[in-house]
Design a protein around this nucleic acid. Structure first.
Length: 298
DNA sequence: AAGCAGCCCAACCGCTTGCGA
DNA sequence: ATCGCAAGCGGTTGGGCTGCT
């Protein structure tokens, strides 16, 4: 096989030697990369341009941060991933000096397992169903609230919601464990519409016509994972052209900064308490994601 | 000490997107 | 409008390292 971009050339593959690194660094620092496809030839490397680009971006760039991820970076990754999903390049933009590849690897090797061990679905950030947890060998001590079951970094938060959501299948009021619905949050640039919600502000703060409601967001999210709950919200889920389902805030969870113990939250929180969300991060992330998706420029 | 399994992460693959001709 | 090329991106692979038996 081989790269389509360099199928006619004989190219070296595999790990880069220090000599190759040196050649590439010298070439780019003196000439810039210009067209990557021409870099190997100009730099005297038997690599394809794509490989050179990747090596530079992921390893040789002078502005790269080295070393393990900090707890703060880890939390940012989790927060942004909850909003954007596996959009590693977007996530990496929030972490100066980190690459998408690095973030992706860190997620797959560490964070994913931590979330699973917390009983959280790494894809949705929702609590796993009991069946999923049972099948998840890593989901140990899920129900424990002892500190030992929490993240080493103390940056994860498991929310134990006691909700009286209505199970539409049996019409029984049931108490269930679930992530909190998004709180109704008002921003400084609050919409004149008193019903304007969290998501409206995040996506539509500068727009006259709010196009998404928090219940829609939540409904979308739950629709994927647990349709029996809140399904009345799904009625409006398809009435607007959503940017991407995974770019909507699935379930914004309060960031518990001072106490890592699992907390019990009552759904009355959603009536007005924003908790301690990292609203700035969420807002900037969503805005940048929305701008990327829509090509907005402000 | 040797063999094995699991993990980590650098690198690759292939698809998508953007852009100019 | 379409084609081709380059870059960007996310998923996957595989080699090396580490810890366990």
């Amino acid at each position: 096989m081989g790269h389509r971009c360099c199928s006619k050339q004989k190219v070296k593959r595999g790990l880069w030697s220090p000599e190759e690194d040196d050649k590439l660094v010298k070439h780019i620092t003196t000439h810039g990369h210009g067209s990557w496809s021409s870099v190997p030839k100009l730099a005297g490397l038997q690599r394809c341009g794509k490989s050179c680009r990747l090596r530079w971006i992921n390893y040789l760039r002078p502005d790269l941060k080295r070393g393990s991820f900090t707890a703060e970076e880890e939390q940012i990754i989790i927060d942004v991933h909850r909003i954007l999903g596996n959009r590693w390049a977007q996530i990496a933009k929030h972490l100066p000096g980190r690459t998408d590849n690095e973030v992706k690897n860190f997620w797959n090797s560490c964070i994913k397992k931590k979330l699973l061990s917390q009983g959280l679905d790494p894809k949705t950030h929702n609590l796993l169903s009991s069946r999923q947890r049972a099948s998840n060998k890593l989901a140990c001590k899920y129900s424990s609230s002892s500190p030992s079951s929490q993240s080493q970094h103390g940056s994860f938060t498991v929310f134990n919601i006691t909700s009286h959501a209505k199970d539409t299948n049996n019409n029984n009021n049931t108490t269930m464990m679930m992530n909190p619905p998004p709180p109704v949050v008002t921003f400084p640039h609050q919409s004149p519409n008193p019903n304007t919600t969290y998501a409206q502000n995040l996506y539509g703060s500068s727009m006259d016509t709010p196009f998404v409601s928090s219940s829609t967001c939540f409904g979308n999210m739950l629709y994927e994972s647990d349709p029996c709950i809140w399904d009345d919200a799904n009625a409006v889920a398809e009435t607007f052209e959503e940017p991407r389902v995974d770019s909507l805030p699935p379930v914004p969870q309060p960031q518990q900064r001072e106490n890592d113990d699992k907390i019990d939250m009552d759904c009355s929180l959603m009536e007005g308490d924003a908790g301690s969300f990292d609203l700035g991060l969420l807002e900037s992330t969503l805005m940048s994601a929305a701008m990327d998706d829509f090509g907005w420029n402000f």
